[in-house]
Design a protein around this nucleic acid. Structure first.
Lengths: 231, 231
DNA sequence: TAGCTCAGTTGGTTAGAGCAGCTGACTCTT
DNA sequence: AAGAGTCAGCTGCTCTAACCAACTGAGCTA
């Protein structure tokens, strides 16, 4: 046992195991019994280390089946971000607004770079999504999935999986918070129009217009989040 | 015990405890014994839940002292991001490059918005940092802290703590990876010149120039990361 | 008063036992 | 022979009980 913290130590050793053996996501890991023999520690310590790794998405545990290398997505980050925001919200901070501004800051910067560079195939996909959105708007409210898909498709062609994942993580966090924390009223038709505006701007290749279209979209949500703006 | 996973259940209950009682960071939590009595579960289960929460930065455990509400920083995200990138790197992916591009994409978008809007006090601080950087460059290599401080100061006045934290988290992750994974050779003088360029552009208020200055800075690092570019 | 010591509290680790979910091979029925 | 049901065996999950290790603070000593 080294420095301070046996459980910490075991976590590092398991991580090292994954890295050294180049294990891909989904690869099976040693059983708890094997790990405790391998490291010379008790079952309990092994389990505590695994739980911590599971919380970080590094490991996936399936009851009665085995332990595997985790998907290593941004899911844990979402959880952390959500909790942090919820806690801040109930303590009177404007944490939800901060999260929205974070998304706004990042997405406005990115969309400017995308303007005019999206291939026709993807534009058609976005077109279809806006159409679906308008359909749903007429029927009542825009489905969350549709909005998510629009944003995902928009930034997909940046060709950086990590970047896309981070953006989707922010979207997911904000979405879950918006529904759990405060039910922000939305006008479906306005939402549709704004998405159509973003698409049109991106298609036209006008970076400035694209940026302001996205900003307008976020501004719409932001206004409804600000205190004293809920009728 | 509800759905699936007792430990998961306890995690949620502890989270609820923190949220419902509006506990701020650093506030003391019940002891392990109290928690096991409170929830009617064994100490083991409590500990596993706490370990998971600790991994997410929601809880802080101090041996022989007690358990406290964690700092809720982005530190766990950094850990996850680092591991993910390391694992990908050793499996032949360009995960490190993706992380750099993520920083580049976000920072170029933000700096454009900052140009000409930074108060003189902050500009002086940045000036001092560049001066220190040049001092260090003359003496050998630029200290990591100085570079970190420059980027942190640059984006501080965006006035969104969450955004600043995320940016610093990305910086930290990349820095640790650059030193641990591949030792990227750097010309200290070029680095200094590029930072000075960014500062000058931001001061001038020219958004386009600021953006390209940041892009050039990242481009410098990116080139040295690409395969076959290490002499 | 300054410093030390020690008892009490809290988390850390171990051990062993039994419970619970899943898989796959075996058996029984059709 | 083909299908469905059963059960043995793995796996992870939870509990209990005991002891180890780190820290605090009250009380003792010099």
């Amino acid at each position: 046992m080294h420095g301070r913290g046996m459980a910490r130590d075991i976590q590092e050793r398991i991580k090292k195991l994954i890295v050294d053996q180049r294990l891909p996501s989904g690869a099976p890991l040693p059983t708890e019994t094997e790990l405790m023999e391998l490291f010379g520690v008790s079952r309990n310590s092994v389990r505590e280390a695994l739980k911590a790794l599971q919380a970080m998405g590094i490991v996936e545990i399936r009851h009665g089946f085995g332990t595997y290398v985790g998907p290593m997505t941004m899911a844990p980050m979402i959880e952390g971000l959500i909790f942090r925001t919820v806690a801040g919200h109930y303590r009177g901070e404007d944490s939800l607004l901060q999260l929205l501004e974070l998304r706004e800051a990042v997405e406005t910067g990115l969309v400017a770079r995308l303007a005019g560079r999206i291939p026709e195939a993807d534009l058609a996909e976005l077109e279809a999504l806006v159409a679906r959105m308008e359909e749903e708007a007429a029927a009542g409210a825009v489905g969350a999935d549709t909005d998510r898909a629009f944003h995902a498709s928009l930034y997909r062609h940046l060709d950086n999986p990590l970047l896309s994942e981070v953006l989707e993580a922010f979207w997911d966090a904000f979405h879950r918070l918006r529904t759990d924390l405060v039910d922000v009223p939305q006008d479906p038709k306005v939402t549709c129009a704004q998405h159509r505006g973003i698409l049109a701007a991106v298609r036209s290749g006008d970076a400035v217009r694209a940026e302001s279209a996205v900003r307008e979209h976020f501004g719409n949500i932001r206004d409804r989040l600000r205190p004293g703006h809920r009728p």
